[in-house]
């Protein structure tokens, strides 16, 4: 099915959705958002593209195999959990450090929780796309 309206708006929406998905991912620690919802939004972008163009086009635009990405995401999340072990704390305890911290300025907080969320993002993003690509290809 070729729809001019869909193809044109998709071009705009894909970029917007992808940026928004990263935004949702990053604000997730303190506000509504996070890896899961971010991954869903990101996947929506490519699903839209799949519908507007085709599975092959979307796969080419994505470059990596979504299934690989999903598994890698699980690995990243697991490693983020393991990082607590380096500090001698129980599995999955959040580890925090602050970039560019100085007197009176707490700097940019980086945490293992963020990496866990990135892992979740990748897992959800890749997982959903694997499924959608497989279903789209068959039907």
């Amino acid at each position: 099915m070729q729809s001019l309206i869909l193809t044109t708006t998709t071009r705009l929406l894909v970029a917007l959705l992808l940026v928004f998905s990263v935004y949702a991912l990053l604000r997730g620690h303190n506000l509504p958002g996070g890896g899961f919802i971010g991954g869903l939004i990101g996947a929506t972008a490519f699903i839209l593209y799949t519908i507007a163009a085709s599975v092959d086009e979307a796969q080419r635009a994505l470059r990596v195999d979504p299934a690989n990405m999903a598994m890698l995401g699980v690995g990243v999340a697991g490693l983020a959990g393991l990082s607590a072990g380096l500090a001698g704390q129980p599995f999955f305890t959040g580890q925090w450090f602050f970039l560019f911290a100085s007197e009176g300025n707490e700097g940019i907080p980086i945490s293992s929780v963020l990496f866990f969320d990135i892992g979740v993002y990748m897992a959800v993003f890749g997982g959903i796309l694997t499924l959608v690509f497989a279903l789209e290809q068959e039907i």
Partner: peptide, 22 residues
């Protein structure tokens, strides 16, 4: 806290990731 309890879950999980990528 004993890490021994975590290994039987984490080891196969990481193995799954690596063996899938390869």
């Amino acid at each position: 806290m004993s890490w021994l309890l975590v290994y039987p879950i984490v080891i196969p999980m990481m193995t799954a990731v690596a063996s899938y990528l390869f």
